[in-house]
Simulated scan of single mutants.
Amino acid sequence: MELRDHGRYGYSALPERPDYHWPGGKRLALCICNNIEIFSYRSGLGSDSATLTAPQTHRNYAWRDYGNRVGQWYLFDLLEECGLPASHNVNSAVLRQYPQILQRILSRGDEIVSHGRSNGERQDVLSENEERQLIAEATEEITSLAGYQPKGWMGPYFAQSEVTLDLLQEAGYEFMLDWPVDDQPVWMRTRGGHILSVPYSVELNDSPSMVFRQESIASFECMIIDQFDEMLFQSAKRPLVFSLITHPFIIGHPYRLHALRRALAHILLHRDEIWITTVGGVNAHIRSLPSGILPGAPD
């Protein structure tokens, strides 16, 4: 049997890679990536709080909209209390329909990562021209409302087609979050050059964990702490990226938020040992390093 290869990066064993440091000589980067999403009422795609294959109803629409009305504001306040920045993967329609969210992001100085037009759709089922249009429309809407073009992309539902990386690089994106392939950034080949893959966890992610695998918030809290402690230990050998992924309609419910508060308090006991940044901060630092440091480095 001949295995089909994607051609986007080559194999690189972790112990064989060149060493480098994050700013200040730190070895572990902390990134909080929060997904702010909008959905179509009773149509399109959208997860359910209880049943994986549930149809789109008023109930699950309301459950998800709770995140934008309530949960996101709890989360903003918690980030403020902890003194933490965040990267927000934002559907462009969110910024148009809920300008208060945009203003809070801008006032905090947080990062916006483009997350498509809405989470009522996905891009991997589109033709190349349709996908190019989706990327262009999302980019133009965020740019016009936020005042700058995002450098990063996260596809709704982690979805990519065969040509997504090519289209993103051609649209001016510097990095994306859709390939959970590594705990270090990796260069990905495109037909027009390269794009950076910044680590984005599909494991330490409240949606697949608590919605799709039906784990409890107690389990997720333990996952956060264990992941952080082990990565801090492993980072003595090599630089790593710890990414914590949230959705306000999931983590923003008070009992879950309280568990997140405890987990962040544990992490911040080590504040002086880690580099607290955004995924865009990771991208910028990597681009400042000499060529050849990263796996799959540009030719």
Rank of each mutant, 00 (worst) to 15 (best):
M1S: 14
G10K: 13
Y11W: 14
S12C: 11
L14M: 09
L14V: 11
P15S: 08
H21K: 08
L30N: 01
I32Q: 03
E37T: 13
S40E: 15
R42I: 09
S47I: 03
D48F: 13
A50M: 09
A50N: 14
L52F: 15
H58C: 03
N60Y: 07
Y61E: 04
A62F: 06
G67L: 04
N68L: 11
V70E: 13
G71K: 06
W73M: 09
D77E: 14
L78I: 04
S87D: 05
S87V: 06
S92P: 05
L95A: 12
L95N: 01
R96H: 12
Q97I: 06
Q97N: 14
I101Y: 02
R108Y: 05
D110Q: 13
D110K: 07
I112M: 07
H115L: 03
G116P: 08
R117M: 11
E128K: 08
E131I: 07
E131K: 10
L134K: 13
L134S: 11
A136D: 09
E141S: 13
T143A: 14
Y148R: 11
Q149L: 03
P150W: 01
Q160W: 13
T164R: 07
T164Q: 08
E170L: 09
D183P: 01
T190K: 08
R191Q: 14
G193Q: 10
P199N: 08
V202K: 02
L204N: 09
N205K: 08
S207R: 15
F220A: 05
E221R: 15
C222Y: 03
D226H: 15
D226G: 11
A236W: 05
K237I: 03
L240N: 08
F242E: 00
F249D: 04
I251A: 07
P254Y: 07
Y255T: 07
L260W: 12
R261H: 14
R261C: 03
R261E: 11
A263I: 04
L264A: 03
L268Y: 02
I276D: 03
V282P: 01
N283Q: 03
H285S: 00
G292A: 06
L294V: 06
L294R: 02
P295D: 07
G296E: 05
